[in-house]
Write a protein that binds this DNA or RNA. Structure first.
Lengths: 120, 120
DNA sequence: TAAATACTGAAGTATTCACTTGACAATTTA
DNA sequence: TAAATTGTCAAGTGAATACTTCAGTATTTA
């Protein structure tokens, strides 16, 4: 038996008002190439080719990464003419921060309660 | 050619003063079972068997997950007698928050500047 | 119109990954 | 001491993943 999880999303990828699947977010950011893409887009929007240039992989590979980032709500893309412009999307990051905050509130509360020696 | 990245760490896994590899953190949290473990440990420390009970996987699998979480600085474990007690470790989460904060400061600044229409 | 540009789609491959089994070691309990 | 508990080690397996190539489709430029 497998303990893998999955979440079926209604239809197409996360649009303007889609709910974020935290599993997709962590999986998307778990790849160094995708984080490099996020880094570039954090500075300014880029076309797919512009993203591909400094990464030593094919355009196809970049497009695949972008799809994953988009499905996670971390990137938003829009095609005008033959150029697809990619930019950072807030939703995924917001979900990420919320996830961390929820956990921290739990164990920080506990941390306050008693003298658990030292940590950081 | 591959675009995969790797980071050689000095010796054994992250001890008290190890620097956190954000790649390990995201990879560790990219798995739903490991996030379930984090959830349990957020409430209170657990032994390996206690962690394994609600997850439908073998004790061995749980131990493997714990190794990954420990290497990422998200969990700390200590064996006393035959029982290994696991608890949340701050360092990994702190690194995660730092990573997000750095990116957000970039693109939120840009967002403020408004009027970001075209690019290239 | 011809040629270059920017991307898309399908299919294949090598590696990584989560998980298992089975044997074993160490500690506690009866 | 015998038996149960708790965890560890080594090796293997099927599925997922990041990447590739090759063959397109639009769109823009010359």
């Amino acid at each position: 038996m497998s303990a893998r999880s999955g979440k079926a999303e209604s239809g197409s990828g996360p649009g303007p008002r889609a709910e974020i699947d935290i599993d997709r977010v962590f999986h998307a950011l778990g790849d160094p190439t995708r984080r490099a893409i996020v880094d570039m887009l954090s500075v300014r929007p880029h076309s797919v080719s512009k993203l591909a240039a400094p990464l030593n992989i094919t355009l196809t590979a970049v497009a695949q990464h972008l799809q994953i980032l988009e499905d996670a709500g971390l990137v938003r893309t829009e095609k005008v003419g033959r150029v697809r412009t990619c930019r950072i999307e807030n939703a995924g990051f917001a979900a990420l921060e919320r996830w961390i905050g929820e956990r921290k509130s739990l164990w920080e509360k506990r941390f306050d309660q008693l003298g658990e020696l030292l940590e950081e």
